[in-house]
Simulated assay, not measured.
Amino acid sequence: MTTDVLLKTPENINLIWKHTSDDFRGITGGTKTVLYNKNGGTVLGSIEGMPSDVFAKQLKYAKWKEVCFQRDKKLKPIYKTFGLEPMFTGTNQWRGDFKTVLEIFKAQKGEDIAKRVGDAIRDAYVPFPDGPDSDGVQLLDGVSEVTKPGRGMLEIVIQRPTKKVVRVFECTRDALQEMYKQAISNPYVLQYQIL
């Protein structure tokens, strides 16, 4: 099976479609089409028909945007609770990673509020596109989080402020070593094992 077939799944095609601006997408004959760069020019074509390198680049961007969407969906109620909702409607610049979000809260509301916000974010489990998620886990290339454990996968037990959770990661051989190192040094990880 080629990498092309593995990448060009209906889920990935729909994700690229979802995160392409309305101005740059359409439907032609029932097929989802987007504008993309090819050989120095702009082409309107089916997502599935994109060259592999263009598809991979578009998919990477779409996945990043999806993490931003999931982050904002979980952060907005927390911001509202702690009185920083007006900041939520502004720039995205300082929402790329957990550390920066906490620094902003600390600067605006003080250290006590920043600690409470940090606990709320960790309990809600908020992913961040530019850094480790709120559990302190950075997904590397060659790693995907799965819901069903299997042989050779990394399983970690995370302590959040009010509960323990189990997370499982499927990794390439090189990525598994790096994820294992992350687990060892993560202060929120209570237990880790390769299944």
Score class of each variant (00 low, 15 high):
M87A: 04
D130A: 12
V5L: 12
P51Y: 13
K60H: 11
I121N: 03
I121K: 00
T162H: 15
F128L: 06
P149S: 08
D22Q: 09
F98T: 02
G40C: 02
I158F: 09
R167N: 13
G45H: 07
I16Y: 04
Q191Y: 13
R167F: 07
S52K: 04
S46V: 06
G90Y: 00
D72Q: 11
V54T: 15
D112R: 13
G150P: 04
K109P: 02
Y188E: 10
Q191L: 07
T162R: 15
K63E: 12
S134F: 02
L154G: 12
V67T: 14
R160C: 10
W94A: 04
C171A: 15
I104W: 00
P132N: 00
P149E: 09
E85D: 02
N39A: 13
L190C: 09
F169A: 09
T81Q: 10
T2I: 00
T89A: 05
I158T: 08
P51T: 15
A56I: 07
L102G: 08
K57R: 14
F98A: 07
I27W: 03
L190K: 14
T31A: 02
W64A: 00
N12K: 04
G40S: 04
Y180W: 15
R95I: 08
K73C: 06
Q138P: 00
V165E: 12
E66H: 07
S185Y: 11
T31N: 04
M50S: 09
A107E: 10
I184T: 05
P86Q: 01
C68I: 07
D119I: 00
F169T: 08
K32R: 14
D112P: 01
P187R: 12
K106F: 02
D22F: 06
T91I: 01
S46E: 13
K38R: 09
R160P: 07
D174T: 12
V189Q: 11
G118W: 01
E155M: 15
G40T: 12
G96Q: 05
K38S: 11
L190S: 10
M50I: 03
N14W: 00
D22I: 01
W17P: 00
A62L: 05
N39Q: 13
E11V: 01
V189E: 10
F24G: 01
Y125F: 09
P77K: 06
T42A: 04
V157W: 14
H19Q: 04
I78W: 04
I13E: 05
T147I: 03
Q159T: 13
D4S: 15
K18I: 03
D123C: 00
T2L: 03
G152S: 12
M50Y: 05
G49S: 14
V67R: 12
D72C: 03
V146K: 01
V54L: 08
D130T: 06
T91N: 09
G110S: 08
G30Q: 13
V126R: 05
M179H: 07
L75M: 12
Q191K: 14
L102E: 03
